[in-house]
């Protein structure tokens, strides 16, 4: 079972860092051809270097794009098909956290910015990729939701709304496209030590964020942060043929946190 991704084309948004980068490394180790999309061009190069360290023969296409821009999404999907001829698996993962604030202070612009990336961006990705997969008659999509998409977290109006929205899109599209052999699922990561979560802790206390992090995971049943590679294993499983019958559902990866209250 080492090479679940031999000859498979895997498209990953937010591939420059965090969960997208971890998933890229995992599927590349198992033979995938990669298309990595990110807003940050330098981060894409960094992921590519890491990919080539673990999979020297991997074919990697980098596309700098803003997932909140529908035309840019159409373009990255077209580029993928043009280059590799198909899309086996799509990790629809790019997202941002937004500035933390009470609802009354969250700000309309900030709300729209977060929703534009996390929800609209995921929808655009589904719109263009599912069309391709429907014609193929196969494919697996994994959307990145969050524990903040199934629970209340606080101070994250935009993030909560958009990630709950991702869960809804997942169920809706899964129901629609299952009949074409295409499955759509979401992962709901909890406290995973990614650059985004590090940034979030620094918002809480810039000088003492590591200590804040330790306190932050005290309520977690496993008493630790998850590692990005642990999410990479889950994403790889769900993106592979092993998980075809898993459809229209949300899979938390959170050390048990969302089952606690």
């Amino acid at each position: 079972m080492n090479n679940r991704f031999d000859d498979k084309v895997v498209l990953i948004t937010g591939g420059g860092s965090g969960l997208g980068q971890s998933a890229a490394l995992q599927v590349a180790k198992e033979g995938a051809k990669l298309v990595l999309v990110d807003l940050n061009e330098a981060s894409l190069e960094e992921t590519k270097q890491k990919v080539l360290e673990v999979a020297p023969n991997a074919e990697v296409l980098l596309i700098t794009a803003n997932v909140a821009d529908e035309k840019a999404v159409e373009n990255y999907v077209n580029q993928t098909v043009k280059t590799f001829g198909k899309i086996d698996s799509f990790f629809n993962n790019a997202g941002i956290e937004g500035k933390q604030n009470l609802t009354e202070d969250f700000g309309i612009e900030e709300f729209q910015k977060v929703v534009n990336v996390n929800l609209n961006g995921v929808f655009y990705g589904l719109k263009y990729v599912l069309k391709v997969m429907k014609e193929q008659g196969y494919g697996s999509v994994v959307n990145t939701a969050s524990v903040g998409g199934i629970r209340g977290v606080g101070n994250q109006s935009g993030y909560a709304a958009s990630k709950h929205g991702v869960v809804g899109l997942t169920r809706n599209s899964g129901i629609e496209y299952g009949q074409y052999g295409v499955s759509v699922k979401a992962i709901a990561p909890g406290a995973i030590m990614t650059p985004m979560v590090e940034g979030s802790l620094k918002q809480m206390d810039p000088d003492n964020w590591e200590e804040v992090g330790k306190q932050f995971v005290q309520p977690n049943p496993m008493k630790r942060f998850g590692k990005p590679e642990e999410v990479g294993y889950l994403a790889a499983f769900l993106l592979s043929d092993q998980a075809n019958f898993i459809n229209a559902t949300v899979i938390p990866i959170d050390g048990g946190q969302s089952y606690k209250y």
């Binding site: 129901i175 049943p221 496993m222 999410v231 899979i251 959170d254 050390g255 048990g256 969302s258």
Partner: peptide, 13 residues
């Protein structure tokens, strides 16, 4: 390794 308490639904939707 970071998953516990999960009920994984495998039902085709």
């Amino acid at each position: 390794s970071f998953m516990t308490g999960n009920a994984l639904t495998v039902d085709g939707g």
